[in-house]
Amino acid sequence: MELVKPEFGLIFWMSISFLIVVFLMRKFAWGPILSSLKERETSISDALNAAKKAKEEVANMTAENERILQEARNERDVLLREARETKDQIINESRAKAQVEGDRLITLAREAITNEKMAAITDLKNQVAYLSIEIAEKMIRQKLSNDEQQKALVQEMLKDVKMN
Protein backbone atom coordinates (compact mmCIF):
# COMPACT_ATOMS: atom_id res chain seq x y z
CA MET A 1 0.00 0.00 0.00
CA GLU A 2 3.05 2.23 -0.27
CA LEU A 3 1.71 3.19 -3.69
CA VAL A 4 -1.40 5.03 -2.46
CA LYS A 5 0.25 6.71 0.52
CA PRO A 6 0.86 10.43 -0.11
CA GLU A 7 4.42 11.42 0.74
CA PHE A 8 5.06 14.64 2.54
CA GLY A 9 8.33 15.42 0.77
CA LEU A 10 6.86 14.94 -2.67
CA ILE A 11 3.80 17.07 -1.92
CA PHE A 12 6.06 19.72 -0.42
CA TRP A 13 8.35 19.96 -3.44
CA MET A 14 5.50 19.59 -5.90
CA SER A 15 3.53 22.45 -4.32
CA ILE A 16 6.53 24.78 -4.28
CA SER A 17 7.72 23.86 -7.78
CA PHE A 18 4.27 24.00 -9.29
CA LEU A 19 3.42 27.37 -7.75
CA ILE A 20 6.71 28.81 -8.99
CA VAL A 21 6.19 27.30 -12.43
CA VAL A 22 2.63 28.62 -12.70
CA PHE A 23 3.88 32.05 -11.70
CA LEU A 24 6.84 32.00 -14.10
CA MET A 25 4.82 30.52 -16.95
CA ARG A 26 2.12 33.11 -16.45
CA LYS A 27 4.62 35.92 -16.58
CA PHE A 28 7.09 34.72 -19.18
CA ALA A 29 5.24 32.19 -21.31
CA TRP A 30 1.45 32.28 -21.28
CA GLY A 31 1.24 36.07 -21.01
CA PRO A 32 3.24 36.81 -24.17
CA ILE A 33 1.95 33.75 -26.04
CA LEU A 34 -1.72 34.33 -25.33
CA SER A 35 -1.57 38.05 -25.95
CA SER A 36 0.30 37.49 -29.23
CA LEU A 37 -2.25 34.89 -30.27
CA LYS A 38 -5.08 37.24 -29.42
CA GLU A 39 -3.38 40.10 -31.23
CA ARG A 40 -2.92 37.94 -34.28
CA GLU A 41 -6.50 36.75 -34.15
CA THR A 42 -7.83 40.29 -34.00
CA SER A 43 -5.49 41.40 -36.78
CA ILE A 44 -6.58 38.47 -38.94
CA SER A 45 -10.23 39.10 -38.27
CA ASP A 46 -9.69 42.81 -38.95
CA ALA A 47 -7.93 42.00 -42.21
CA LEU A 48 -10.71 39.63 -43.19
CA ASN A 49 -13.30 42.25 -42.40
CA ALA A 50 -11.39 44.85 -44.39
CA ALA A 51 -11.12 42.46 -47.33
CA LYS A 52 -14.82 41.75 -47.09
CA LYS A 53 -15.57 45.45 -47.02
CA ALA A 54 -13.28 46.09 -50.00
CA LYS A 55 -14.94 43.27 -51.87
CA GLU A 56 -18.34 44.72 -51.10
CA GLU A 57 -17.15 48.12 -52.27
CA VAL A 58 -15.84 46.68 -55.51
CA ALA A 59 -19.14 44.86 -55.97
CA ASN A 60 -20.97 48.10 -55.28
CA MET A 61 -18.78 49.94 -57.76
CA THR A 62 -19.35 47.33 -60.43
CA ALA A 63 -23.06 47.49 -59.81
CA GLU A 64 -22.90 51.28 -60.02
CA ASN A 65 -20.96 51.14 -63.28
CA GLU A 66 -23.40 48.65 -64.67
CA ARG A 67 -26.26 50.84 -63.59
CA ILE A 68 -24.75 53.95 -65.21
CA LEU A 69 -24.08 52.02 -68.40
CA GLN A 70 -27.62 50.73 -68.43
CA GLU A 71 -28.93 54.20 -67.87
CA ALA A 72 -26.83 55.53 -70.75
CA ARG A 73 -28.10 52.76 -72.95
CA ASN A 74 -31.68 53.53 -71.97
CA GLU A 75 -31.05 57.21 -72.58
CA ARG A 76 -29.67 56.47 -76.02
CA ASP A 77 -32.64 54.26 -76.82
CA VAL A 78 -35.02 56.97 -75.68
CA LEU A 79 -33.17 59.56 -77.73
CA LEU A 80 -33.17 57.38 -80.80
CA ARG A 81 -36.84 56.64 -80.42
CA GLU A 82 -37.64 60.26 -79.91
CA ALA A 83 -35.61 61.23 -82.97
CA ARG A 84 -37.41 58.66 -85.04
CA GLU A 85 -40.74 59.86 -83.79
CA THR A 86 -39.81 63.46 -84.46
CA LYS A 87 -38.70 62.56 -87.98
CA ASP A 88 -41.92 60.69 -88.65
CA GLN A 89 -43.90 63.52 -87.21
CA ILE A 90 -42.10 66.07 -89.31
CA ILE A 91 -42.61 64.01 -92.44
CA ASN A 92 -46.25 63.48 -91.64
CA GLU A 93 -46.76 67.10 -90.84
CA SER A 94 -45.04 68.16 -94.06
CA ARG A 95 -47.10 65.74 -96.00
CA ALA A 96 -50.30 67.03 -94.42
CA LYS A 97 -49.25 70.62 -95.00
CA ALA A 98 -48.42 69.89 -98.63
CA GLN A 99 -51.76 68.23 -99.08
CA VAL A 100 -53.55 71.17 -97.60
CA GLU A 101 -51.50 73.58 -99.69
CA GLY A 102 -52.12 71.59 -102.83
CA ASP A 103 -55.82 71.42 -102.09
CA ARG A 104 -55.88 75.15 -101.51
CA LEU A 105 -53.98 75.81 -104.74
CA ILE A 106 -56.29 73.55 -106.67
CA THR A 107 -59.30 75.25 -105.15
CA LEU A 108 -57.84 78.64 -106.02
CA ALA A 109 -57.14 77.48 -109.55
CA ARG A 110 -60.63 76.16 -109.88
CA GLU A 111 -62.07 79.41 -108.64
CA ALA A 112 -59.85 81.33 -111.03
CA ILE A 113 -60.88 79.06 -113.88
CA THR A 114 -64.53 79.48 -112.94
CA ASN A 115 -64.09 83.23 -112.76
CA GLU A 116 -62.25 83.31 -116.06
CA LYS A 117 -64.91 81.13 -117.59
CA MET A 118 -67.66 83.40 -116.30
CA ALA A 119 -65.76 86.40 -117.53
CA ALA A 120 -65.29 84.70 -120.91
CA ILE A 121 -68.99 83.79 -121.02
CA THR A 122 -69.92 87.31 -120.08
CA ASP A 123 -67.53 88.64 -122.68
CA LEU A 124 -68.96 86.25 -125.25
CA LYS A 125 -72.48 87.36 -124.37
CA ASN A 126 -71.38 90.94 -124.70
CA GLN A 127 -69.72 90.09 -128.02
CA VAL A 128 -72.89 88.31 -129.20
CA ALA A 129 -74.99 91.23 -128.13
CA TYR A 130 -72.58 93.60 -129.93
CA LEU A 131 -72.57 91.40 -133.02
CA SER A 132 -76.36 91.20 -132.95
CA ILE A 133 -76.59 94.91 -132.67
CA GLU A 134 -74.08 95.30 -135.53
CA ILE A 135 -76.03 92.79 -137.65
CA ALA A 136 -79.31 94.48 -136.85
CA GLU A 137 -77.75 97.85 -137.71
CA LYS A 138 -76.45 96.54 -141.05
CA MET A 139 -79.80 94.93 -141.86
CA ILE A 140 -81.61 98.01 -140.94
CA ARG A 141 -79.21 99.93 -143.15
CA GLN A 142 -79.55 97.58 -146.14
CA LYS A 143 -83.09 96.38 -146.30
CA LEU A 144 -85.48 98.46 -144.38
CA SER A 145 -87.88 98.72 -147.27
CA ASN A 146 -88.41 95.21 -148.02
CA ASP A 147 -90.57 93.67 -145.39
CA GLU A 148 -90.32 90.15 -146.61
CA GLN A 149 -86.67 90.16 -146.77
CA GLN A 150 -86.56 91.84 -143.41
CA LYS A 151 -88.71 89.20 -141.88
CA ALA A 152 -86.69 86.33 -143.49
CA LEU A 153 -83.53 87.82 -142.32
CA VAL A 154 -84.77 88.30 -138.78
CA GLN A 155 -86.01 84.76 -138.85
CA GLU A 156 -82.73 83.43 -139.99
CA MET A 157 -80.80 85.44 -137.50
CA LEU A 158 -82.98 84.32 -134.63
CA LYS A 159 -82.48 80.76 -135.76
CA ASP A 160 -78.77 81.25 -135.39
CA VAL A 161 -79.18 82.86 -132.01
CA LYS A 162 -81.19 79.88 -130.72
CA MET A 163 -78.56 77.52 -132.00
CA ASN A 164 -76.10 79.34 -129.97
Partner: peptide, 9 residues
Protein backbone atom coordinates in the same frame (compact mmCIF):
# COMPACT_ATOMS: atom_id res chain seq x y z
CA UNK B 1 8.34 23.36 -19.58
CA UNK B 2 9.91 26.72 -18.81
CA UNK B 3 12.55 26.14 -21.48
CA UNK B 4 10.03 25.16 -24.14
CA UNK B 5 7.43 27.81 -23.45
CA UNK B 6 9.66 30.79 -22.75
CA UNK B 7 11.39 29.89 -26.01
CA UNK B 8 8.03 29.88 -27.78
CA UNK B 9 7.04 33.12 -26.06
Amino acid sequence: MLLIFTNIA
